[in-house]
């Protein structure tokens, strides 16, 4: 790149970063503001955090979110990894159609999944609760796990598995001693991805959980609908800081050329 082009792009990128971060930083700033109105600075306080930490609703919602996310992660990781192994190893009739099927959850709008599940629960006369969110969460996460693990498998040297088999290991032994340790980083990245998708998911939870089973994003939504309140700023600030920590922690491993992870 020419020097001049580079300078222009540099300035431009600074602007985009400002676009990303100025709103977030202002949001965080006002969580320490000593005023209820929330958009005029009057003084520094930790009051909103104190108030937030005595909010039992918030902790209940956090607990619900974690509960759903953990179950989703376990199920999606197992199902997605199995699917990836099959896709990597076998050719079978209908592979292309099934491949297409796995693309759907990647692109499908969450509102379609949400109302479709709501409709089928209605048809089955099921009462909505907390666990009714899990089928949808898992359904949209499986493909992400599968694609991440598949990418890892693609970089695998097949001769290692062949060597194990030649040396007399059966399929089970080969899998647990050779294949699994080699794809483990991919499986872990897939699991992290499923966990993050689930924790972050709002629309499916909004439609498919029952009253009183709020997840954290659903609680945030209902708080924001009521208007600006520094307590939301405090909660948002904590959530953003957790993401900063998570991003730094997974750091270079999690950033991949891909959108959501893959190691």
């Amino acid at each position: 790149m020419r020097q001049r082009t580079k300078r222009i792009l540099f300035g431009y990128s600074l602007l985009i970063f400002a676009f990303f971060y100025v709103p977030i930083i202002i949001l965080m700033m006002f969580s320490f503001n000593d005023s209820k109105i929330g958009t005029v600075w009057t003084g520094f306080t930790f009051d909103w955090y104190v108030k937030l930490f005595s909010n039992t609703q918030m902790f209940g919602a956090l607990q619900n979110s974690l509960y759903i996310a953990v179950i989703t992660t376990v199920l999606a990781t197992i199902l997605g990894t199995m699917a990836a192994l099959v896709f990597h190893r076998y050719n079978f009739p209908g592979k292309k159609a099934i491949d297409f099927l796995f693309y759907i959850p990647v692109v499908i709008p969450d509102i379609v999944v949400a109302v479709a599940l709501l409709a089928i629960y209605g048809f089955l006369d099921m009462t909505l609760g907390l666990i009714t969110a899990i089928p949808g969460h898992v359904a949209i996460s499986i493909s992400f796990v599968m694609f991440v693990v598949l990418a890892r498998l693609a970089g695998l040297d097949d001769s290692l598995e062949e060597a194990a088999k030649d040396l007399g290991a059966n399929e089970w032994q080969t899998f647990w001693r050779i294949t699994f340790p080699l794809i483990f980083p991919g499986v872990l990245a897939g699991a992290l991805l499923a966990f993050t998708i689930s924790i972050d998911e709002f629309v499916i939870s909004f439609f498919t959980t029952g009253p009183g089973s709020n997840t954290l994003p659903v609680l945030v939504y209902s708080m924001v609908r009521l208007g600006v309140s520094p307590e939301i700023n405090a909660l948002s600030t904590i959530m953003i800081l957790l993401i900063v920590i998570a991003v730094l922690f997974t750091g270079r491993k999690m950033i991949s050329p891909n959108k959501k992870g893959e190691e």
């Binding site: 971060y21 977030i24 924001v224 953003i240 998570a246």
Partner: peptide
């Protein structure tokens, strides 16, 4: 780029 990417949409709209 990852930080805004992973931050919940609701929070970013609230900002």
């Amino acid at each position: 780029v990852m930080v805004p990417f992973w931050t919940n949409l609701l929070i970013r709209l609230y900002a």
